[in-house]
């Protein structure tokens, strides 16, 4: 899997600036969203000159198939179009345009079993042209992911891209929606293409901006005030949680207890303490067992 980011997460930000923010977060590449009125030739030239790593192009309208196919070919990445935008076009004709230009078209489908079966059937009837694949538009906030296993099974052979409306700063919002089990199924199916993180709502953009700019360089960003006996790490990024808890624990006087609040099973924190603190210097107690909130107590002995 290649973790990627849609340019929709940072509208108006220069590609190389966005690429730097992505590198600091270990994100493998960008998906460029083509807006209505964009000069495709200029966009392609700018993207090529930037040296940025791209995984895909996305357009929501299919007005100039030739130009879109050319852009896909020149950037050597697939271009995705939502299924609805293709209505009225003939699949074999569209496939031929992309094949002639040396591009790849991905047809975006939703988490809808009947839709994906109809789509794979239409592609089969067109002889499964190699210039056409599928892009899954995954919206965990509104999709019913109970059917996602069947959708994956139907789409698997042709699946080239997963666009996740979420991830990034929205990761926690999608707790309990079925994202974990679905990504396990995707992994086991052998899917190795891009996962493109995309904001699920435009109102959420400020969070994405903050998320992207909060890590200019890699490293643990969590400072922690000493003398605090309670930490709630639910709003701390996963990678900074252990540092936050260890910092608070180390600042404790002997005999004091640190109360920890988390949104996942704290067992891993016990193992981390065991690994990093001298034996016999702490007592750990897990309180309650989720499913949304967990508490633990660590006493310095």
């Amino acid at each position: 899997m290649k973790l990627s980011l849609s340019t929709a997460a940072a509208p108006g930000v220069a590609l190389d600036t966005l690429d730097m923010a992505c590198r600091a977060r270990g994100i493998d590449g960008l998906e460029i969203v083509i807006e209505a009125g964009d000069d495709l030739e200029a966009l392609t030239a700018r993207a090529r000159a930037s040296g940025v790593r791209f995984v895909a192009l996305r357009a929501d309208h299919f007005e100039d198939p030739d130009a879109l196919a050319r852009a896909s070919s020149e950037l050597a990445v697939p271009l995705s179009i939502p299924l609805g935008a293709l209505s009225g076009s003939s699949l074999p004709d569209v496939a031929r345009v992309f094949a002639d230009k040396g591009g790849t078209l991905l047809i975006g489908f939703g988490t809808d079993f009947d839709q994906v079966v109809a789509l794979t059937g239409a592609l089969r009837n067109a002889g499964n042209p190699p210039s056409v694949g599928l892009a899954w538009e995954l919206r965990p906030s509104s999709d019913n992911l109970e059917a996602s296993g069947a959708v994956l099974l139907a789409a698997r052979e042709l699946l080239r891209l997963v666009r996740l409306y979420g991830g990034g700063p929205e990761q926690r919002d999608q707790d309990g929606r079925g994202v974990g089990p679905l990504f396990v199924d995707l992994a086991i199916s052998g899917y190795s293409g891009p996962i493109v993180m995309t904001p699920s709502r435009s109102e959420g953009l400020p969070r994405w901006t903050e998320w992207l700019s909060s890590r200019k360089s890699a490293g643990c960003g969590a400072g922690h005030p000493a003398g605090q006996h309670e930490v709630d790490v639910r709003n701390v990024e996963p990678r900074d949680r252990l540092g936050t808890i260890l910092g608070a624990f180390r600042a404790l006087p002997r005999g004091a207890t640190l109360q920890i609040t988390l949104d996942h099973d704290p067992s891993c924190m016990y193992y981390a303490l065991e690994d990093s603190e001298p034996a016999g210097t702490f007592a750990f107690r897990k309180i309650g067992d989720g499913p949304k909130v967990w508490h633990a107590e660590v006493t310095k002995t």
């Binding site: 973790l3 270990g26 996740l164 979420g166 991830g167 990761q171 926690r172 999608q174 707790d175 309990g176 929606r177 994202v179 974990g180 089990p181 990504f183 996962i195 993180m197 639910r234 996963p238 988390l262 949104d263 996942h264 099973d265 989720g290 499913p291 949304k292």
Partner: peptide
């Protein structure tokens, strides 16, 4: 990285 904390 994209899986919610409780499900990782």
């Amino acid at each position: 990285r994209v899986i919610p904390p409780s499900e990782k």
